[in-house]
Each structure stands twice: as C-alpha cells, then as structure tokens.
Design a protein around this nucleic acid. Structure first.
Length: 527
RNA sequence: GUCCCGGUAGCUCAGCAGGAUAGAGCAUCGGAUUCCUAAUCCGAAGGUCGGAGGUUCGAAUCCUCUCCGGGACACCA
C-alpha cells in the first residue's frame, strides 16, 4: 500500500520523496516532510512549498485529503482506495504479503552444542530465527534453515565422561569430577538410560567413554530436535562438524594458495589480521589437531559453495568477537564476506522473584526451554522473545512469565481476534459473506482502523529487512488496542452499518491472524 | 586496555538513514457493564531522553569527549 502511495506521489512530483507515518493519527495516514528539504534550494519557506505541492497532488483519486501543515504534507487515503485493499485481503488472505524477495538465503540458527538440553538463552535465537524464516518466506525469499552440530571437539568427549562418572556415582562408586564436566541432572538421566540400553559394562572403566560420548550426543540431538518441534521450529538440514573434516585438506590447500596460512611455533595460523581481525588465529595446533575455527572455515567454505545469495547466522552475542575471523577466512577462500550477515542475540537475564540468576549450561544451573514452554506455552514464549530487539539485553521475571492474565500481550491480541469471530458466529456469517460489501461513509475511526489493519505487509517487510521481528509484535499490539477501543465505542450487530463494520472487523482479524502466524503464534478464535 | 550492546516515565521497553506537543505496556489512582466476551474501554498522574560540548532552520536521533551497567577479548566449542 505504501509503495503504491509513494509511487503516485513521486510520479506526480517527479522526484524522490520520503513517506512516513505521522506521529499523531489526526494528521492523516501518511505524511512527507519533502518541503523542508526543498526549502533550501528554492529559497522559500517550507510551508509555502508544501502548499504548492498540495495543489498538484489533490487531484489524485487515491487521496481523500491532501493538506499542508507547518511544512508537512499530510495525506488521507480515500475510502474507495482502502476498501479495494480490504476486498483484496478478504478474497485472498493467504496472499496479503506480496512477494518482494528474489534472493536465496541460508539461515543458520540455534546450532546449540549437543551436550545438553536447550536452555532459555538458546530459545531466543531459535525463536528469532524461526520468525525471520517465516517472514522471509512470506515475502518470497527462498530460505533454507540449517543447524550446525558441533559434534567434534572435546566437549563431546566431556559429555561421555560425565555420563560415565554419573553412572559410576549412582552405582555407589566414589568419583571425582574434573573441571568442565556437565553436572546437570540430565547427565544422570542419560547415565541411567545408557545402563539400560547399552549395558552396565560401559561403566567399568574409561575405555568406553568415547562410545558413551557418541551415544549421548545423539541422544541430546534427538532431545533438542524434539524440544524445538514443540515450539514449532524445524530445520531443512543439519550439518555435522565432524563430517566436515574430510574436506580439510582441500580447504587448507585453497587457503595456502592464497597465502592465508603461515607456520609459527609449530602451529598453523590464519592471517586474519589482513581483513581486520585484531590478531591472527591458530587453526592447527602443535599436535596437528585442527581448532574449532578450522571447522568453521570448512563449514563456511561448504556453505558458500552452495551458492546462496545471502547467509544469515544467528549467534549468541558472546560470539561477536568471532565475526571478524570468520569473515576473514571467507575472504581468503575467495568469497564475498559481505554476503554473510550475523544477527546477534544478546543475553537473556532471568529474574526469579527479584533475585537475578545467571545461567550456565556447564554447571547445570539453568532454565530449560522446555520447562518454560510447559509453564507459559510456546506462544507466550515466542512473543516474549520476539517483542524485543535481538541485540539488546532482555530481562524478565520468570514469575511474570508464569502468569496467564491480561498483562500478557498474547492474550490481549488474541482476544481482539476472538471477538471478531464470536461476532461473526453470533451473526451467523462468515468472512466470505462480506467481501463484496462496499464501504461508504464510514466514520473516521473506522477508516483509521481499516488503514491500520492494512499496514501489515509494509510492517512485515520492514521487520524482515531490518531483522526486527519486534516491529510486528508492536504493530499487533497497537492494532489490537485500536480494535478494542473501536469495539467498545461502536455497536455492530443491529446497527445500520452492520455489514460494513463486519467487513472492517474481518479485515482486522485476517491481519492479526497472519501477523501472528508469521511469528509462529496461533491465533485463537475463541478464548 | 581494546571491541560490542545498552542508559528515555516507578518497572520493562519503543522511537534514533535529524523533523510536528518524546510514546506504549505494566504498576498506581479515579471512572465505565439492563447492549456483539469488562480477559475490554475511558481518564489522571508520571520525563533535566546518563552528562558536557559540537554540527543546523531543527538533535532522544548525527559527531567528539565523558560517566554508569552488561558482555566479549582461547591453541573451549
């Protein structure tokens, strides 16, 4: 809708224009401050320019009003124009969002280590990634979701060791836990499970730790996948770090050809400083074992070989120092590192009561995503994370999350949606029945509400391009509020404008429904 | 020390490719229901936009400095 309005204005004025939403609705649907920027070159006061421009634009039939005010030009869209959009929305709810994207995107997210269940911090990245996927897909992008499994390094061995020790301990043996072991309860569960499925003979001596590690890792992945499914998150592909190392000789040759590597202190270093990293990084240790970075280099080589137009990685903010070296590696490999975009998901601080507590996966002192889902439901969980920008710290109180009352915006939005459905039910009608109703002589509030309901596509577009799903949650909250107010002030059933208002409401409901769907949240038809 | 994120109402946060009187939710206080769900709505109160300079017609928004909070600075993944 915005693009349409913009093109009409630009065509008429013959110049590029910034179109914005006025801060206050009373100014109109859209506004442009273009007169300010023209003031200098024309050496005339903005309000005079605005006045002249208005005269040029008034004849456009998509506008009901074009008014100059203090240099701004304010536009009010015509009822016919809005109505035509409402009709289109109701005719084809599935295609509200028109495709604008033509890129192929590889979206990598979650990628949590398979050494423990997902905690609330992982959940944030998971939910953000999934929402991006849903929005991008609706906008016509071809997006693949990928999970990178860190199944190679020492942490997997430590998982095996932890299972072994937990088993020994529960058998009554005295054990000493080395630094860095996993001590969460799930380790004891795994040990018990291992005894049953693999046999107690795996707990005699440490020779079976590797076996336990392999087994435990697979178990954890199964659990992680199940947890994600419960929140409605799926992947198109999983890439195992371990499987990548076959390619290391080849990737290493590529790097060597480009003089990306050098040897020092009997280690192999990546010359990442050439592309802006603070220091060069070790990729192969003294004993010949590649570092984690080597794995990531191969992974990104393999990613870029698959020729996507863009790569989006969602990482925890603690990885931000890692960006420079990975981008450097990509450059060395001969690819364009600007195609790689990193979305950082900042830490989540949880409060319980008023006590802050830190999460640590390794210590086993953390909140499980699955527990939170069980308490507040996936929809509330998703909304919580999506309603804040990903790159800022998020703080919330677990106690608040447990409450299922009006303070939960998901309920508020759903309630608006449900009200529309209950109204249609009462009228014995369906959305399809009001498509052809013509909207005429509606009051200003109705037209404004309709306008708001039609904004979804441009909100989603901006949310996706800026990677800020919170624009959609904010929009839905505002739309719901506007609807509730209107609902309170206007009686629908039995009124002269019953059919018109029903069409308006249906459009609002479709917008809410679609908006929630893009966030992975189910719109309720009944509370 | 270097880098990243943040500092806006009592709390949690929007707004920041400069633009109209700085917004929302929660919490607080006061009101609204013979009528489509009051799980709602209306109203009140609440602000030196961390601080100081600068840029200009105009700064919460851009630049510099500075203070405060969180995080990252592995041959761990």
């Amino acid at each position: 809708m915005k693009n349409r309005v913009l093109s009409v204005i630009e065509k008429r004025l013959g110049k590029k224009v910034v179109l914005e939403k006025p801060k206050d609705k009373k100014f109109g649907h859209y506004a442009t401050p273009v007169a300010f920027s023209m003031a200098k070159e024309l050496r005339k006061p903005p309000f005079e320019i605005a006045k002249e421009l208005c005269e040029k634009l008034k004849s456009e039939e998509i506008f009901a009003e074009v008014e100059p005010l203090k240099g701004y030009i304010n536009f009010r869209l015509s009822e016919d124009f809005l109505d035509s959009y409402a009709t289109a929305v109701l005719k084809n709810p599935e295609r509200i969002i028109s495709p604008i994207g033509n890129e192929k995107i590889l979206l990598e997210f979650v990628s949590a280590n398979p050494t423990g269940p997902l905690h609330i911090g992982h959940a944030r990245g998971a939910v953000i990634g999934d929402a991006l996927y849903r929005m991008g897909k609706a906008l016509g992008y071809e997006i693949k979701r990928e999970y990178y499994i860190n199944d190679h390094g020492s942490q997997v061995y430590k998982l095996g060791l932890s299972i072994y020790l937990a088993g020994r301990e529960s058998m009554g043996h005295e054990v000493t836990w080395p630094e860095g072991c996993y001590r969460g309860e799930y380790v004891y569960d795994l040990a018990r499970d291992a005894m049953e499925t693999l046999g107690r003979d795996h707990f005699v001596d440490e020779s079976s730790v590797s076996r336990l590690a392999e087994w435990g890792k697979d178990r954890m992945m199964e659990l992680i996948v199940r947890d994600l499914e419960k929140v409605g998150i799926y992947f198109d592909s999983f890439v195992s770090e371990k499987s990548l190392y076959d390619m290391w000789p080849k990737v290493r040759t590529v790097l060597e050809e480009r003089e990306a590597l050098y040897e020092k202190d009997s280690k192999i270093w990546l010359r990442s400083t050439r592309f802006g990293d603070e220091k060069d990084r070790v990729v192969v240790r003294e004993d010949g074992r590649p570092t984690y970075l080597a794995g990531d280099i191969i992974y990104h080589y393999q990613k870029f070989k698959r020729s996507f137009d863009r790569y989006i990685n969602i990482w925890g903010a603690d990885h931000h120092g890692y960006i420079a070296r990975v981008k450097a590696a990509i450059e060395f490999l001969g690819f364009d590192s600007s195609k790689l975009e990193i979305v950082l998901a900042q830490m989540v601080s949880l409060l319980k009561g008023s006590e802050p507590f830190k999460m640590s996966k390794r210590a086993g002192n953390y909140i499980l995503m699955s527990d939170v889902v069980e308490e507040i439901g996936k929809d509330a969980l998703r909304f919580m994370f999506l309603s804040k920008k990903s790159d800022t710290h998020l703080e919330f109180d677990v106690e608040t999350l447990k409450q299922q009352d009006a303070s939960n915006p998901v309920y508020y939005i759903n309630y608006a949606h449900a009200r529309v459905y209950s109204l249609f039910e009462k009228a014995g009608a369906e959305f399809g029945d009001v498509i052809e109703v013509e909207l005429k002589n509606m009051n200003e509030e109705a037209k404004d509400l309709l306008f708001s309901a039609l904004l979804l596509p441009e909100v989603v577009e901006e949310a996706f391009l800026k990677r800020e799903a919170n624009r959609v949650t904010d929009y839905l909250k505002a739309l719901a509020a506007q609807f509730h107010r209107f609902y309170n002030e206007n009686r629908v059933l039995g009124s002269q404008k019953e059919r018109e208002l029903m069409k308006l409401f249906a459009t609002v409901a479709v917008s809410i429904n679609k908006g929630l769907e893009l966030l992975g949240i189910e719109a309720k038809k009944r509370m």
